[in-house]
Design a protein around this nucleic acid. Structure first.
Lengths: 154, 154
DNA sequence: TCTAGTCCCATTGACGCCCATAGTGCCCCA
DNA sequence: TGGGGCACTATGGGCGTCAATGGGACTAGA
């Protein structure tokens, strides 16, 4: 399975390193990459992480923009200055830099969460909070739709 | 990876020198260049720095952006007259000249920010301010157009 | 002579590379 | 079916290398 699924929480050691879950790692390494591309999510206190092809996807999206509009500059700045590479060491670990900590609030532990084509890095508490919030939103949405279309799935 | 990505802040020493991040340096040296070209960014209080090919790209952009040749000439003059070489010393440092300080407000520290094909030099505070502004604009834009910049929607 | 710009060297702290260990799940075999 | 052992992951730590920074000495031009 070459999709990022599920979530795992790992500990950051005294040297500031954390193991990327083997399951996620194998997907990246299968593609022959030893470095990860990380981007600070716009709306969430989380990091979007994937192989270099993640950056390619964003670059393609960027090319669709009018290169002389402010949006293109903004997107380029966001993708290139506000993103960066994370190098995997020989044991499949990455070092948690200030770049990561500032945006996510991560301190002692990291929750890795699959997101299909990539994965995310969270502070465990914030991840949990986000998870329940999402669940509530979805439940609410379904409740509204059920008023019209009663599809009782439970 | 031969792209300028991420950002680092380095200190200017008593002699006015600052280390160019090794990651950026290696990209330049891989391309076989010993000197850097610096241009004032058009809209930002930052310096665009890169190899000689940076000049050509800026010229092309100028031509396309401004249909009136005379204005384009003025702009070209403005850029080139004040643009200059930054010589790397043996330890990969450059001297921060008044030319740099005037346009960027840089005083004690420099933030080097990747911009894919080149990099930028910022005053740390201004960089941070710009970063948050860009994120706000992109977030707003996405809210309006449902523009899918980050994959992480959840 | 003084100043500004180089070249070179020293220090220190961070990071990469390597190996060790403990916990866990799985498989195989009795 | 239960036990032993193998494989692998997460984690911890040692150590050498390199980057960032500071500073001294030499040179050339004002």
């Amino acid at each position: 399975m070459n999709r990022f699924l599920g979530h795992v929480t790992n500990r950051i050691d005294a040297k500031g390193r954390v193991s990327v879950p083997a399951q996620f790692r194998s997907i990246i390494q299968k593609a022959g990459h030893i470095e990860l591309y990380a981007l600070r999510s716009l709306h969430l206190p989380a990091l979007d992480v994937g192989g270099p092809e993640l950056l390619m996807r964003f670059d393609q999206r960027l090319e669709q923009e009018d290169p002389f509009a402010e949006t293109a500059d903004d997107m380029s700045f966001y993708l290139h200055a506000d993103g960066g590479f994370l190098k995997l060491d020989g044991d499949g670990r990455i070092t948690v830099t200030d770049f990561i900590r500032e945006h996510t609030g991560i301190s002692a532990d990291v929750t890795f969460a699959g997101a299909n084509t990539h994965f995310q890095m969270w502070h465990p508490d914030r991840f949990e909070a986000h998870r329940t919030r999402v669940r509530e939103r979805l439940a609410e949405k379904r409740r509204q739709e059920n008023l019209r279309i009663p599809v009782g799935t439970s």
